[in-house]
Write a protein that binds this DNA or RNA. Sequence first.
RNA 1: GCCGACGUAGCUCAGGGGUAGAGCAACUGAUUCGUAAUCAGUAGGUCCGCGGUUCAAAUCCGCGCGUCGGCACCA
Length: 656
Amino acid sequence: MPPASDASSSPVAITLPDGSVRQYPGPVTGAEIAASIGPGLAKAAVAIRLDGGEPKDLSRPIDRDTRIAILTRDAPEALEIIRHDAAHVMAEAVKELYPETQVTFGPSTETGFYYDFARATPFTPEDLARIETRMHEIVDRDETITRAEMERDQAAEFFAERGEKYKAEWIHEIPKGEAISVYRQGDFTDLCVGPHLPSTGKLGHAFKLMKVAGAYWRGDARNAQLQRVYGTAWATEKELKQYLFQLEEADKRDHRRLGRELDLFHQQEEAVGAVFWHPKGWTLYRVIEEYIRERLKKANYVEVKTPQLLDRSLWEASGHWEKFHQHMFTIVDEGEKRVLAVKPMNCPGHVQIFRQHLHSYRELPLRMAEFGSCHRNEPSGALHGIMRVRAFTQDDAHIFCTEDQVTAESVAFCDLLQSVYRDFGFKDVSVKFSDRPPTRAGTDATWDKAEAALKHAVEAAGLPYTLNPGEGAFYGPKLEFVLRDALGRDWQCGTLQVDFVLPERLDANYIGEDGQRHRPVMLHRAILGSMERFIAILIEEYAGRFPLWLAPTQAVVLTITDEANAYAEEVRAACAAAGLRVGIDLTNEKINYKVREHSLAKVPALLVVGKREAAEGLVALRRLGGKDQENLALGDAIARLKQEAAVPSHAAAVTN
RNA sequence: GCCGACGUAGCUCAGGGGUAGAGCAACUGAUUCGUAAUCAGUAGGUCCGCGGUUCAAAUCCGCGCGUCGGCACCA
């Protein structure tokens, strides 16, 4: 239907993505353009893009010549709108069912949406089921969604009158001059920038409420706690099903489940936030530690070990006491009247070693590494399996260098880190650049210098990064290298921090070319971050099926009857002599049972021997997950496994 | 730390005011077997802890502790 043109309007020319141009007598909406192209498009349309900009509502009038694209349900951008609408439909359902509830914020997320509600009584799982049912009803009602703009005061009054004090408060935060828009669907009106679907029916039914959790108003723990209801939403039922299936699969890779099933480690109430490493887990740990040690050695690091307990005065000097003493474990030495802190990090200790000599600029950069065992009294709610613990070990190092060396050292570190991640099989790592936090040590001039140096370094390393404003350490800006777990949660592993502050506070010096004392710069850096966390991520990445070089047990020799026992022992001994981590299973069970047992234990290679193999000096090699086996001479089998089990850094040429 | 859910055998879970249950695992015995579960038997419990209600509590109530999911925190 062509729009009615009024006297003041002039014709509008709309260019479609295929280059064709359509003329309209006056202002026209996206919905009208879609309808004029065809009823199919009108039905599928969810939003419109003007001049390649952000998606807008289909109901917005367009009064000038422009290029447009009609976004349909299957467009990637449409999903975000669908999810955002799901949040609004949920809010409408909640307001209908529990009118005393106040609404606050409800954005889309990576897999769905949430909405934060203020309500005195908590939502129960039964409430969630009721809300979800009502949401489906609202979709079936197919309520028209309309956008309107309001004056600031008028909008504030509107929401205040309805008892929505959070919304009213927020309106005052919106920058002056910015339009204040509200969206209406049925009896529900929400303050929102949009865009939204034309009607609730367009949302469809591919959504599900997942969980309810606490969340603070405006993300600040000092504010009221709201109830956040999470949901997932998709364009199609099939995608929803697929997502729910993926969640189940991810749960099977959870490091806590696999840690128990594979007998790698355990945790218990008497040592909250700490790890009991079992023999297999500790084997994995040591393989990784040894690998890193080799890499660092080749990159010209030296390794040190510093004390677990250090006097409070040292932490005061470094500035950690002021900022973190509540999270430090302390010990009062009654006899000496001293307060000692269990080290939460290694840098002050490393500076003490540095200070024991007078260093020449010729000795820099000095790269000092430590597998530093640290304790931090993390808040109970932060603990998470072995990913977030109170007792952990960092693959830590501090590079003492001159200002001129910062870039080259940073680039070398970024290369080393990427090479290490590649060896472990991680391909996509995201990098965040965190700049000065609100509370910090050091002058603004120092921060300007440190941030510029780090930015220059990350760019020189050729790494794409996103900005993470205000999230730097108190003594310097940092790069964070982030890996993702099986459930899609991001965990910081590697880090690189430029620090001009601690050398000053802890009085580290070197003698320059000019014969004068100078402050070194400290680069704080870790690749794996926490050994515990990194191992957890590895477990999930591989779902417990480690590559041969990492597998705690690389092979097990299985006998078919006890007549092969002596030969099996010979095979085991030969494997062990070749440096393989090998076990043997002489139990009186059927071969089917043994294969199943060791397959479930995710042993990568099974060497089956019976009478035939014993007679001919063979083994039947069966690989984890394989359907069949291969008969090989014992020596060939060992040579093959040994080659595959080589630690990557030892096999490949290393440049760092 | 905050909000919510949960805590029963080594594991996965059922039971829900009146004698503590299953499968798998463990142990014992038999079976000598050719690539993802051989058969039979035995044993196994502070139902997270402490209080309370009750003739009677694993079960209901309160308080702790822990775990899980978020939020906040993360040198």
